[in-house]
Design a protein around this nucleic acid. Structure first.
Lengths: 126, 126
DNA sequence: ATTTGACATGGAGTACACTCCAGCAACTAT
DNA sequence: ATAGTTGCTGGAGTGTACTCCATGTCAAAT
């Protein structure tokens, strides 16, 4: 299956401008047809899904770009990419730890507020 | 305990420029001394710690600002702030879900890569 | 034949969250 | 008294990740 930029925009949810921006940044490198128009494949679709996952966990474009470069270089770069993924896993586990702590903190905060509200309610007899 | 902007910058780890920016944005509103210099208190320290937690979980400045406004208005705004915290908790739990999914996905990806590497190793007999 | 529509490019503009700088005031140490 | 340090303001500049725009090409529809 081959997609024009408009069709690909629809299936990925990325805007046409964003796709062109990603092309310029060499994040997603589509082929071109006889009229110099970008042609995207299903393999690009898989790749976009992965990029979006990396982005969801705050991997900056530059780093994704580095990964993309390695990916386009082929199988010889598997080790290097694996290293990147190991690093990213550490980053994500750290993020998860922080997030869990923050959720705990938020729960404490909410409990404190609820206590405060109850006292207030008692005072005004409701 | 009262802190000058420089001292407060050191205890919070926020740069002097950031503190002035947060003041301008009405996120942290320090008092001023006779020479119009900002004076921060220990209560501001607690507040900064909370702001940093909100920021760590991607709450945008504008939203923190709204919270700050309510906070400076005093106890009558507790209900409203509690609402914001409830919303933020939902946001954070959602973030956590996404993050957990992404970690799972990353683990799968890593496992796939490791399999690929092993095959390669077998091919070249190492 | 011309209009329409999707696509192309280069470059400007935007939002966010800072970060830096020029120019000035006031206290502090020598 | 002069230099140094710390602080003040307003405004400009930075990096990231888009987003928008003017202008132009090409194939298909009318």
């Amino acid at each position: 299956m081959i997609y024009s930029i408009g069709a690909f925009s629809k299936v990925t949810g990325l805007s046409i401008d964003t796709l062109r921006y990603y092309d310029k940044e060499e994040l997603i490198c589509p082929n071109r047809d006889g009229n110099n128009r970008r042609t995207y494949t299903d393999s690009d679709k898989t790749w976009v899904a992965f990029i979006l996952k990396l982005k969801e966990t705050a991997m900056p474009i530059k780093q994704i770009k580095r990964y993309a470069k390695l990916r386009y270089l082929g199988d010889e770069t598997v080790e290097e990419r694996l290293e990147m993924l190991y690093d990213h896993r550490i980053f994500m586990l750290d993020l998860k730890k922080k997030l869990d702590e923050n959720i705990d903190h938020l729960n404490d905060k909410i409990a404190a507020f609820e206590g405060k509200l109850n006292k207030k309610c008692n005072k005004i007899k409701c």
